[in-house]
């Protein structure tokens, strides 16, 4: 899967939000916000083709988390991103 062109991460306090760079009207009610872990994943797969396994590895390599939990979290976040229309399958 891949982040769809034009979606970029912007910091918002301690969180991050995803904004379509070319979009002329930004609706804060439909905005996608990421916590720091999700933003870390995003930054590391930006511009690349990636899999749920890649996300899992990023989590286990960089955080103290068991592989099983990391895999479940990675699958969940990937599904959310696809559902939100910011990542293509």
């Amino acid at each position: 899967m891949k982040i769809i062109d034009g979606f970029v991460l912007r910091p918002l306090g301690e969180e991050f939000i995803v904004i379509g760079e070319g979009i002329s009207q930004i609706n804060f009610n439909k905005m996608i916000s990421l916590n720091s872990t999700a933003a870390f994943l995003w930054e590391n797969v930006e511009g690349k083709d990636f899999t749920v396994e890649d996300l899992t590895k990023l989590l286990t390599d960089n955080y103290e988390v068991e592989e099983e939990r990391a895999a479940a979290d990675a699958a969940a976040i990937a599904a959310k991103w696809i559902e939100a229309g910011i990542v293509s399958e």
Partner: peptide, 8 residues
């Protein structure tokens, strides 16, 4: 856990 929420 990584989180992505759709409302701010």
């Amino acid at each position: 856990a990584p989180q992505s929420s759709d409302r701010k």
